[in-house]
Structures are given as structure tokens and as C-alpha cells.
Design a protein around this nucleic acid. Structure first.
Lengths: 327, 327
DNA sequence: GGTCACTATGACAACGTTGTCTCCTCCGGG
DNA sequence: CCCGGAGGAGACAACGTTGTCATAGTGACC
């Protein structure tokens, strides 16, 4: 900036005025300064600016499990959209379902003085956030609640959705329904399992623990669960996939099976309607999840001091065919 | 920091020494300082640190068309992985295929003094980057080359891949092959069209422009293209989808068609193997694309001054069935 | 002609850090 | 007892900006 000032024959303050479009600069002077800026390729250092002004940095942090997972990338996109409308930029990070990594990312973002943080939490301990939140960094939890603190949270109706899935299958005559979920350490997985149990009760089906398989989904884990639960005389006639990744592995495992059970997935996914049979899912609006969370965050950024809010978004069953297969 | 210093009864310089793990601090003093840091919830301001040290900011920028598109989110993930291994964080942005937006994002990133920028360019004019690059911000272009400047670029073999697709279809007896591509303003779309033409020539098929449809893919545009190209006595017996989005819309348009032409897609996508028939694609390693670009960028960040490089990654045809349908 | 308001500009400090230099104290060796 | 050296700590400036205040010049008005 001082180079520009020297070249234009003015003080750096005048350069500052020009780049900030402040009034009270003579047009001729402004033009000289602009020319110097152009010639030198000067670009104002936002870091220094933010430091001096003590203002916001114009960035927010987004932490998800994996930015490459279509579910989270859609979320990312929705968040980015809102952030852009508020003139903010987004720092992203993948926690890889590791709470240490999550913590590291959050603290790094705080050190960068992001204006706020959106996080799909990996762990259950969030005490480390208390000082940061007290220091004025708003945090909104997405898809899963904070472990041990109260904070703004946006969730989907995991319980109701799974109950609906069970009911749908029951209405089509299924009494032996299997549930394949992600690791029970994950809030949504635990909650959906709870919904499964509750759904069984409501539909007069005795809850059979031997028809449940929980754990991080891999092709192998899902493959063996399929063998165990869907083969033999006592096999389940229907199966619920606890999330989009379980569903994908399940579909692959079932592709070459002799008997195809009825199936309902939690989370919609691309091409579900083009499979054979088309996959019935409990769908929710991922964009709405991101929008709601980001809107809430920016309300906080702009000073909303009301008590922490908990938003639960609705889900709806999209019947496409795979859930209507008879037992 | 001065609060911490006051509470610990030391100078701020000593606090600085403690947070930077500098030697020559008495253990007792360090402990007092740590306690004060803990008590006050102090977190060092990275912006100020970077300003003072004149060092790198520890961030890189990534600009893609749409972070929500699975193709780009996989790229994002790969880039993040490398960035993490270099201790950097990633600022992401979606250009929405709009060159003004791309420019805006790039300049904003530069103002934030990112250490480098990875960009899937939207437009063809990149002169605006010259001052930034001269000022020392390395830029690597991904998936598409820069318009009017020389710069590091990582591409995939669009030409070869499409030729391979045509050849595959020709080997299965097809002579009337349609090509549905994205907007010809996009480098990859234009290049793949060129490959299509070249593939026709090499396989002794007369290139028929009336079998080509280019444009931003929407359900409607692809639907009408399908009607035009794949219906009637002169209909094509096979079709090549120019990218993953064209493929998805095409599959949906074909789902209820009477005659299903043979099909090959460019870009692999999840569940392609589970459709009926499984979709044959020209696949490429998106992670490798991101890795290569990020590795190249960090080499530049670390001072590599060699002439701009152009990397072209190989593609390979994955025959799954949809390309082997007889005419 | 003097005062006043206003325009255009600059000097300087400060944002939160860290690099450099300096100072003080304590210890061991001669 | 003096001196050199090492360890520990602080004062100060600087990074690139911008907010505050001061200053000089220019008309307009009484």
C-alpha cells in the first residue's frame, strides 16, 4: 500500500480511502491512485484489514464427516449458498467421524477467527467449545446434537421417519423386518434404531434383536449381515437401511441374491428411482437442513441472543416400489 | 494476550514464547502462563500472527463449478486430504459455471492471501490472474485449461476416452451413434465432442452432425434430445453421454422408453453397476485428479519454479453391459 | 477582510502478534 | 573478588490496514 502511495504521490491513508470508496477524495487524486494500484497489481490484505477493524473475518467454518459424501456435499452447497448471500466464505473440513480431528478443526477455525461454525459433530464431548462460544463464536450443530452442552441444533425427524418406514413395511404384510444401521455411537443411527423399535411396537411386531445389525458400513459388514439376516428359514422378509451408505452397500449385496426382500432406505439418493425395483426411502431435504442451520448461524452472528434453539425438520416417505414388495 | 500476561504477571512477549513453545522460559513461568491461558480461554489470533510473520496463511482456495456435484465433492475431498497433509486448510467456492463469479472468488481468495489456488475454470479469460500469479500466488487449473495464459494444468484424457467409447460401441455393431454433450463452451464438452468425431472417423463411421446435441443438461433438454435422436426410422442405436449429469438425465429419459439404445457414459458414478443394464462408462480417477493438482500446487507453494506443467491423466473404459447391447 | 464551513489530505496510533535487541541475575572459574 | 557467559525476561518496533484527529486551502457570507 505504501508502494502505491509513493507511486501516486499521496499518503497511504489516501490510498486507503480510495480502496474503501470513502468520500472526500478528489477525483483526480483517486484516479492517480487507481492507476498506481493497477500498475502495481496491489490487492488489499484482508487479514490486516480485519485485524485493524476488529470486525468479522467474513468466513465461517463447516465441519462434516466427509465433504466427499453426497449427503454432506449437498449440505455444503446449501450452506455455501446462504454464506454467499451474507457475503461470507466457507472453510470446510472433514472430521472423518473422529472427535479429535473435529476438535482440531474447530479450534483451528476459531484461531482463524471465523465468524461462526457449523458442525456435524463426531463425538459426544463438546466442553472444549464452551470457551469459544463464550468468546463469541456462535456454533450450530447439524444433523446431530451436541454431546454435553446446550447449543443451537438442527436435526431431522429420525425417530418419526423410521417409525414410518416400519409402518409402511408392516402395511404391506411384513412381520419380520431387519434393520441395518451405522455405528450406534452415531446419534442418528441410535435414534433410528430407537425409531425401529418403536415402529415395531406400534405395529404389533415383536422387536427381535437378532434382526438388527449395527456398525460402520463396509461392503463386507453389510454382506455378512445380509447373509445372516436374510437367508434361511427364519429370514427377514424386509429390511431397513439406516442411511445412504448402508443402502448402497445393501443394494450391492442384494443385487445377486436369489430372494430380494422388501427394502426401505433412510436418506434419499440419486438414481434411487431408476433401480429395479425403484428404492423406497425416507427422504428429507438436505438443502433445507443446511439452509436452516446457516440461517440460524447468521442470526447469531448478527447478534441474536435468544436461548438456544432446536429445530427438527420433517421427513417423508417416498414410496417407489422396493417397500411394496410382498413378503 | 495482554490479559493473559497481566494475569500471569509477565510480559506479553513471554506469553508469546509460551504459546510458541520457545525455549528459555522458566518451567514455573510457563505453568503460570498456561494456567492464565486456560482460565481466560485465550486462543492466539492466527490472522495477526500471519501478518506479523509475513508467512503463509495456511489456507488454499478451491473453486469448482458446484461443491454439491458428486464429481466435484470427490475432488474436494482429495484436495482436502493433501492440504491436511501439508497442514493447510481449504476455502471452497462454487463458480456456478459463471466466469464473473469465478473471478470474484479468486480475487477474494487472493485478498485473504491464500497460499495457492486450485480452480476448475468457468470462463476462458484468465488475464486477471496474471498480477496475482506474479505476486506469488500459485494457481493450478483442474479438469480444464486456462483460457489465455500458460499455467499449471491437470486434465483427463477427454479425447482418448471418447474415442474409446465410440470404438467400443462400433465393435458391438453400432453405426449410428448419438452424442449428448454439455455446453460446448466448456472445454471438456468440446474436447469430448472432438473425440466423438475422431472416434467416428477412426471406426469408419460417417460423422453425422444431426446425431449430436450439445447444451447445459436439464431433464427437459435431454428429454427432447432423446425424442429427436432415438426415435423414428433413422434413430441412433447407441448414445454417448458427455458427462455424469447428462448420463443421469439420459437414464431417466430412457427409463420408460420402448427401445433402449446402447449407452456409454463419460465419468463414472455411484450405482452405475446396479442399474439395468449396468452402465458402461469411461471412468477416470477423480481422486487422482485432485491429488495431482494439489501436489503440484504445494510444490509451487514450496518454491518450485520450473516451467508450467500440463498433466493428462488416463481414462479407462469400464464395460458393464449398457455398451454391449446389440443394435 | 475576517470568520466559518467545508473539502482534501496527512500524521499517528492501534489492531494482536512476533523478531530483535537489551537488560538483569546468577553461577562458575580464575 | 572479578569477569564471562548463559538463562530468563521485557521493551520496542513492525507486519498492513483503518479510525481519529489535525492541518491547509478554498470559497461564501456578513
Amino acid at each position: 500500500m505504501s508502494d502505491v502511495a509513493r507511486l501516486a504521490g499521496v499518503s497511504i491513508k489516501t490510498v486507503s480511502r480510495v480502496v474503501n470508496d470513502e468520500p472526500a477524495v478528489h477525483p483526480d487524486t483517486a484516479e492517480r491512485v487507481m492507476a498506481a494500484i493497477e500498475q502495481l497489481g496491489f490487492r488489499r490484505n484482508l487479514g490486516a484489514r480485519n485485524l485493524r477493524r476488529g470486525s468479522t473475518t467474513g468466513t465461517i467454518g463447516l465441519i462434516v464427516e466427509d465433504v466427499g459424501n453426497p449427503f454432506y456435499s449437498e449440505l455444503n452447497r446449501a450452506v455455501e449458498r446462504i454464506a454467499t448471500s451474507f457475503g461470507r466464505q466457507v472453510l470446510t473440513g472433514s472430521s472423518e467421524e473422529n472427535s479429535d480431528r473435529e476438535r482440531e478443526l474447530v479450534l483451528e477455525f476459531c484461531a482463524r477467527r471465523v465468524d461462526g461454525i457449523l458442525v456435524v459433530p463426531a463425538g459426544l464431548q463438546h466442553g472444549y467449545l464452551v470457551p469459544e462460544m463464550r468468546a463469541g463464536t456462535p456454533v450450530v450443530f447439524i444433523d446431530r446434537p451436541a454431546g454435553d452442552i446446550v447449543a443451537d441444533t438442527v436435526l431431522v425427524d429420525n425417530l418419526g421417519g423410521t417409525i414410518e418406514a416400519v409402518t409402511h413395511l408392516a402395511q404391506h404384510g411384513h412381520r419380520r423386518i431387519a434393520f441395518l444401521g451405522d455405528s450406534p455411537d452415531i446419534f442418528t443411527a441410535a435414534e433410528r434404531l430407537r425409531g425401529f423399535r418403536e415402529g415395531c411396537v406400534r405395529n404389533g411386531i415383536s422387536y427381535d434383536e437378532s434382526l438388527v445389525s449395527m456398525g460402520t458400513p463396509t461392503p463386507e459388514s453389510i454382506g455378512s449381515a445380509v447373509k445372516r439376516l436374510l437367508d434361511g428359514p427364519d429370514a427377514a422378509t424386509a429390511v431397513i437401511a439406516g442411511n445412504n451408505r448402508v443402502a448402497v452397500h445393501l443394494l450391492r449385496a442384494l443385487a445377486h441374491a436369489e430372494r430380494r426382500p422388501a427394502m426401505v432406505g433412510f436418506d434419499d439418493f440419486e438414481l434411487a428411482d431408476l433401480l429395479d425395483p425403484p428404492v423406497t426411502v425416507v427422504a428429507h431435504d438436505v438443502s433445507a437442513l443446511g439452509h436452516a442451520a446457516a440461517e440460524l448461524l447468521f442470526a447469531r452472528v448478527q447478534g441474536d441472543q435468544s436461548p438456544p434453539r432446536k429445530v427438527v425438520l420433517p421427513v417423508h416417505l417416498v414410496a417407489r416400489g422396493s417397500g411394496e414388495v410382498a413378503p
